[in-house]
Design a protein around this nucleic acid. Structure first.
Lengths: 231, 231
DNA sequence: GCATATTTGTCCGTATGTATA
DNA sequence: CTATACATACGGACAAATATG
C-alpha cells in the first residue's frame, strides 16, 4: 500500500529542510521542497502524493499540505483528481508538443530582442555554453542539464519582461517532468554544439542564422522528448 | 472596522453562486467568484480580504478560503503579507510597464504566426471589432472592454499554443486591476479604430504594417494606463 | 510605549462522500 | 456488493503577529 521508496525520500528531505522559522509561509516552503523533488526526478511522474504521508514526513498539518498542493497545481506540476488527491503530473505527447509550441515563439522573439539587449547579456550566453562543455567532459550530466536550461532561460530573459521570464521558468519546470524518461547523455550531448552556434551567431549579430539554428534545435529536442514520452 | 460595502458585495455574490454540489473543488469555485469580482472592479485594488468575512459570506470553512487565496496569489490577483493576510493587488507603474513588455512580443509574434493560422481565425478578428463598434455606439463600455480583451486574446491564440494563451489570459486579468483607475470611454474609444486597422491589415496579409499599427496601439495604451496608475 | 483586541498561521478532530480492492 | 482507504470539507482551538486605543 504505502510506497516505501517515496516515503524514504520524503522523510529525508522534509526533515532536513528546516521548514519552520522562516520568513515565508509554511505552505510556500513545502511547495518549494516538493517542486525540487519533482523537477529533479526524485518524485517521478505518476507518484501519488498522499496527504497523510506528507503530514508525517514534513511534520506539518494537512491544511498546509493542501495549500502547497494548490500552488503546485497552478504550476502544472501536479494534477488533481477529485476525491482521489494529487499525483505528480505525467506529460503526454500533446503536452510536449504544446510546450515546444510555447518555447519556439518565445525564444525566436528573444533572438529578435537580442539586438537591443545589453551586449554583456548576449556574451554571457557563450560563457554558459562553455560551462556546459566542461561539465559534459566531466560526465556531470545533471549539471549539463541545469546549464542547458540556464542557457535558454537566459536567452528568453533578453526580452526583458519579468513575467515572460517567470512564465518560461514554469514551462521549463513542466518540461523537466519528461526529462526523467530520456537518457541524459542522449538529451544533451548533441545540443551543446548547437547552443554554441546560436550564442556565437548572436554575438556576431547574425540573428537570422541564429533563428534558423534555434528552430532546428527545438525541432530535434521535441522529437527526442516526444519519443521518450511515447514509451 | 468592517468594510460594509465589501461585505455587501460578497454577501450577494457568494450566496448566489451555488457553491456546493458541483464538479470542481469548493476552493476552485470560491476562487472563480473572487476572480470575477476582482477583474470586474467590484473589489478594487487594495481591498483587504479577511478570512472570517469570506467565511460568513461564502459559507465555507476558513481552510477552503485559504486554498482559494493560494490560487489567486499564483495569478497575481492578490498579494500576501505574512500575518496580515491578503489584499487585492494594486499595480504600480513598473507592473504596467512590464505587462506591456510582455504583451508586445507575444502579440507581435502572433502577427507573424497569422501567416500560418487558419484564415477563418484571422477573419474572426474583424467580427470582434464590429461587435465592439456596436457596443460603443450603444454606450455599453463594459461590453466594449470585454470585446477589446477578446480581440487581443484571439490574436494571441493565433500562435496556437495553449500555454501561451492561458498565460495571456492571466496577464490580461492582471491588467484589469488597473482598468478601474481609467475612464472606460478614454480607454477604449481611440482603440477600436486601431483594432479595426490591425484586423484588416492581417486579413490583407500585410503583416509588417499590422505590426507597426499594433506597436503604436500598445504604446498609447501603456501611456494611458500608466498615467491612471500614477494617480 | 503599553495593554488590548483582532487577525492570521497552524494544528487537530470529525463527518461525509467517493473511488477502488 | 461490501469494506476500506482516502480525499473533501467543516469547525474548534491556540499561539504568534499585528493593529488599535
Amino acid at each position: 500500500m504505502s510506497d516505501g521508496v517515496t516515503e524514504a525520500i520524503l522523510q529525508q528531505v522534509g526533515a532536513a529542510a528546516g521548514l519552520r522559522f522562516d520568513r515565508s509561509s509554511t505552505a510556500e516552503r513545502v511547495a518549494d521542497v516538493l517542486r525540487e523533488l519533482i523537477i529533479s526526478g526524485d518524485l517521478p511522474p505518476g507518484t501519488a502524493l498522499r496527504e497523510q504521508q506528507l503530514v508525517t514526513s514534513f511534520e506539518v498539518s494537512r491544511n498546509t499540505i493542501r495549500e502547497a498542493f494548490r500552488l503546485l497545481g497552478r504550476e502544472r506540476l501536479v494534477v488533481y483528481h477529485l476525491h482521489r488527491g494529487v499525483a505528480v503530473r505525467r506529460l503526454n505527447e500533446h503536452d510536449v508538443h504544446d510546450i515546444y509550441r510555447t518555447r519556439r515563439p518565445l525564444e525566436l522573439m528573444a533572438i529578435e530582442y537580442s539586438a537591443d539587449a545589453p551586449r554583456a547579456a548576449v556574451v554571457a550566453l557563450v560563457g554558459l555554453v562553455e560551462q556546459a562543455e566542461s561539465a559534459a567532459e566531466a560526465g556531470d550530466w545533471k549539471q549539463v542539464g541545469t546549464l542547458n536550461i540556464a542557457f535558454h532561460q537566459h536567452l528568453v530573459e533578453l526580452i526583458g519582461s519579468e513575467r515572460i521570464s517567470a512564465f518560461f521558468r514554469v514551462v521549463d519546470a513542466e518540461l523537466r517532468l519528461a526529462f526523467a524518461l530520456v537518457e541524459p547523455a542522449d538529451l544533451y550531448t548533441p545540443f551543446i554544439p548547437r547552443n554554441r552556434k546560436i550564442a556565437e551567431l548572436l554575438v556576431a549579430g547574425d540573428r537570422a542564422a541564429a533563428a534558423k539554428e534555434l528552430t532546428a534545435y527545438l525541432e530535434e529536442a521535441e522529437r527526442l522528448i516526444r519519443a521518450g514520452v511515447r514509451v
